[in-house]
Simulated assay, not measured.
Amino acid sequence: MAMPPGTRWDAYDRQSVSGACVPDVCRISGCCEMSVAFLWAAPAPLVLAPTVGLHSPGGTPCGAGAEPRGTLVPVPFESTQPVVPGDRVHLVPGSHNVRDLGGLRTRSGRTVRTGRVYRSDYPSFLEVDATAIARFGLATVVDLRRGTEAAEECIDWGGRGVAYRRWPLTAGRESSWHARYTSYLTRRPETVVGAVREVMRPAAHTVLFHCAAGKDRTGVLAALLLAVLGVGEDDIVADYLLSAASVEPVIARLVEMEMYAGMLADSSVDEQLPRAEHMHLLLRWLERHGGAEAWLVEHGVPAGELTDFRDVMLER
Rank of each mutant, 00 (worst) to 15 (best):
A223T: 05
R201F: 03
L224C: 00
V228Q: 01
E190D: 13
V228T: 04
E198D: 04
T191W: 03
R197P: 00
H210S: 13
L226H: 04
R197F: 01
D216V: 09
V199I: 12
V207G: 10
L225R: 02
E190C: 03
T182K: 13
V228I: 07
K215A: 03
K215L: 03
L221Y: 07
A212D: 12
P189C: 04
R217S: 05
L225D: 04
L225E: 06
R188P: 09
A227V: 08
E198Q: 03
G219M: 15
A204N: 15
V207I: 12
A203D: 06
A227P: 00
C211M: 12
Y184K: 13
L226V: 07
F209S: 12
T182P: 11
V220A: 09
C211F: 07
S183R: 14
R187G: 13
P189L: 00
R217D: 10
E198V: 01
P202M: 07
L208R: 13
V193T: 03
T218H: 10
R187I: 15
G214Y: 10
R201S: 08
M200T: 00
K215M: 02
V207S: 11
R197S: 05
T206K: 14
T182G: 11
A204Y: 04
L224H: 03
P189K: 02
V228S: 03
L221H: 08
L221V: 13
G219A: 14
L229H: 04
A212G: 12
A227Y: 03
L224V: 01
V228E: 05
A222T: 15
V220T: 13
C211S: 15
A222G: 14
M200V: 00
L208A: 14
M200N: 01
C211K: 09
A223W: 02
T218A: 14
R217L: 06
A203F: 02
H205A: 09
L208F: 14
G214T: 09
G194Q: 01
E190H: 01
G214R: 12
F209G: 09
L225V: 08
T191Q: 08
V207D: 06
L208Q: 13
L225C: 06
L208W: 15
L229P: 04
G219T: 14
L225Y: 04
A227M: 05
R201Y: 06
Y184I: 12
A212Q: 12
K215W: 01
L221M: 10
